[in-house]
Amino acid sequence: PADHRVDATSGVGADAHSIVIIAQIHEINGQRLDLKKFKCHIDQVSIQLLRHYRKFYDSLLSLHFTFNDIDDAAGLVLDMCRCRDSLSIRKDRNESYKTCLGPIGSYHLREGLKIQIVPELLQKDSVFKMDSKQELVLFSNGKYVLSNKALVKLVIAYQGDGRIGELSRLMLSLQKELGTLEGGGLISDVIDACIQLGWLETAHGILDDMELAGAPIGSSTYMSLLTAYYKGKMAREAKALLKQMRKAGFVVDLSDEMVMTTCLLGVVDKNRMHTRTSTSIGNSGLAESLVQEMKKEITILWGNIKRSRESGSLVVCRDLYEFLVLNFLRGGYFERVMEVIGHMKEQNMYCDKWMYKSEFLKFHKDLYRNLKASNTRTEAQSKRLEYVEAFRKWAGID
């Protein structure tokens, strides 16, 4: 076995536990470049030590997202997924591992403190207890895998930059690494999440990319998108997608009108509408995680808008207000809904009650319909009921 003794003259040696703690400190301080210097050494640890470095990669990935560096984040994700395979083909596990000196402490010191990093060293006893909370990176069946939270951050970042093709390639690479290419799996979950959030163009773009790549996607994914097109009265897009479905053999001997009726009523004729692969979408929790993350971002956006508006540095247009109302409605943030509507009224802006009413009925038709204020269980529920009733009254919903 390799000699893991540390020369006392070169400083203190940091084992796996200590390296992870250092990584967490760098994450807190936003020192991404320092943490990146350790990665090439951590990447080379033996398979037996992989699970001990989950939090290291979690911290580094978190910093990439903090710095909005989607390229480094994607690169790290792929490196993690391939980590075990690259290590398993290494023939000589007795080769010596390089150590490195990592900076710790304040940069204002003329000679900053250094600590020697020994990634292969794992002390049996550690003075510090590592945080076991799993945020972005998980460890399962001997591999690093991404949490829904990490996947959501990737999807939002790529979608926000309009880099759908790159998102598709990344998801396809991840799915291949997971060994679940048949039937869609991860990619179907991503597409379904986009559909539920109303990102239909993004969902269709990923579907097109998968067709070009020869990666099969189950018919239920196509049906979900087609149904969303019909409900959104997007006839041209629905016609194009239906043409793709016929070409793929998912629809047989049904007129366009019959397919539309099938989608809207949710009744499938199994003799005429085939499912090439059995795949259940929407069960991974990815869609819910994506919606929750978008709620968070929109709430932060609304707070920033209010502050800027109050300071006079921003004039808010009706389209932005409408965007906020629709997203808060979908997320069930009724206090925020009424707050934004109030701002629109103050500025004599037109409020499309019919559209807001339709959106409410689509997502919250029976919400608190039979609940009275006297029967609410918590103060939070009572408050939410108050705003739901206020919206129902304003929108004319019985």
Rank of each mutant, 00 (worst) to 15 (best):
H4F: 04
T9R: 14
H17A: 10
I19T: 06
V20A: 02
A23G: 09
Q31M: 07
L33Y: 12
K36C: 09
F38I: 13
S46H: 09
L49N: 10
L50Y: 00
R54M: 01
K55W: 00
K55M: 01
K55T: 06
F56K: 09
D58K: 08
L61M: 07
H64P: 07
A73M: 02
L78N: 04
M80P: 03
C81D: 05
C83V: 08
D85C: 14
S86G: 14
L87D: 03
D92P: 08
E95G: 13
Y97Q: 10
K98I: 02
K98E: 01
C100M: 10
S106W: 02
E111K: 11
G112R: 11
K114N: 05
I117H: 00
V118G: 00
L121S: 06
Q123V: 09
F128L: 15
S132F: 12
S132Y: 08
V137L: 04
S140G: 14
S140I: 15
V145L: 11
L154W: 01
G160S: 09
R169V: 02
L170R: 07
L178E: 08
T180P: 08
L181M: 10
E182H: 12
E182P: 09
G183D: 05
S188K: 05
C194S: 06
Q196R: 10
W199D: 15
T202M: 05
A203M: 01
H204T: 14
H204L: 09
I206A: 07
D209N: 15
D209P: 13
L212C: 12
I217E: 02
T221H: 04
Y222D: 06
L226Q: 08
Y230C: 14
K231Q: 04
K231V: 04
E237N: 11
K239G: 14
A240P: 08
L241A: 05
K243G: 03
D256L: 10
M258K: 11
V259E: 00
V259H: 03
M260L: 13
M260F: 02
T262G: 04
T262W: 00
G266I: 04
V267R: 15
V267M: 13
V267F: 05
T275P: 06
S278P: 10
I281F: 03
K296H: 10
I298G: 13
I298C: 14
E310P: 14
S311P: 03
V315K: 15
L324Y: 01
V325E: 02
L329S: 03
R330N: 04
G332A: 02
F334G: 09
R336F: 00
E346Y: 10
E346A: 13
E346R: 15
M349G: 08
L361M: 09
K365G: 07
D366G: 13
Y368C: 12
L371R: 14
K372R: 09
S374Q: 14
R377F: 03
R377Y: 02
R384K: 08
L385H: 03
L385N: 07
E386T: 13
E389T: 11
F391S: 14
K393V: 11
D398M: 15
